[in-house]
Amino acid sequence: MKKGILNNDRFFRYGVYALLILISIIILYPLYYVLIASVTDPAVVGSGKMLLFPKELYLEGYRQMVKYTPLWRGYMNTVLQTVIGTTIAIGITIPAGYALSRRDLPGRRKIMFLFTFTMFFNGGLIPMYLTVRKVGIYDSIWGVILPVALSVYNLIVCRSFFESSLPEELLDAAKIDGCSDFGYFFWIGIPLAKTIIAVLCLFYATGFWNQFFYPLMFLGSEDKMPLQVVIRNLILLNQSKAASSIGRSAIEGAKMAQQLKYCVVVASAAPLLAVYPFLQKYFARGITIGAVKG
């Protein structure tokens, strides 16, 4: 009955491992390549002789990057937007997620529907732009924080977390002891919610850190632009040429411009890539809860 190579368990297992190794390499190598290209002489990179290890260490790109003020201003803006944005987002999501997890909340299903509906239908780009103008937050840091200060998906994840981790008997017992809803939320809910807070911080922070389109639309002034917009200008609109040709010959400038691009990618991606492995056991749980019960 069992025929063919697919049914040979040993071969099958080898095949599985081979594929997984291949997948891992495909995922990691581009990131690794960008990293080693950022510290290798651009001439060597351009010639295609650098594949596995950095060759001819050359750190001019990073030196240039440190001196390039628009990038650091962008970095500062991004850090600020991420920290403030994530704090506000958590402050909105956690209490709401808790309230919606309470089965005795009158009108719970209807309220939930009003939230869920917006996941599948929304006003779109232009009405959002007009809203931002109308609220009076255009061209301010609030213009890129408030419109994304709540993600309904995250709210559902949070609600499901509370539903599955706070047993109803606990609430009943607390109520008999005269505990108010506020008291229960602050003294029992929040201390048990560390996992979900960590997950949501990661999700929101990633979102704020990577924001590109809303800042482009909702910020007018150059000096408020976050890192992603600065990087876009440098790499994709090729401003790196102008940034690195000051006081250099044309060839030297072009060489620098190319390396600066690699350095900038590293500088932007590094913080998130350094943090997520420590939080991953939490977020795997977060996604699972949200998707299964959402």
Binding site: A99, L100, L105, P127, M128, P147, F185
Partner: peptide, 29 residues
Amino acid sequence: RSWQLYVLLLPAAVWIIVFAYYPMYGLLI
């Protein structure tokens, strides 16, 4: 009796009105 729960829900409710339903109203244009 559940007023405290509604207070916890309030910021999210304000948000959804301003940044989700108001833009939907804006679709009129």
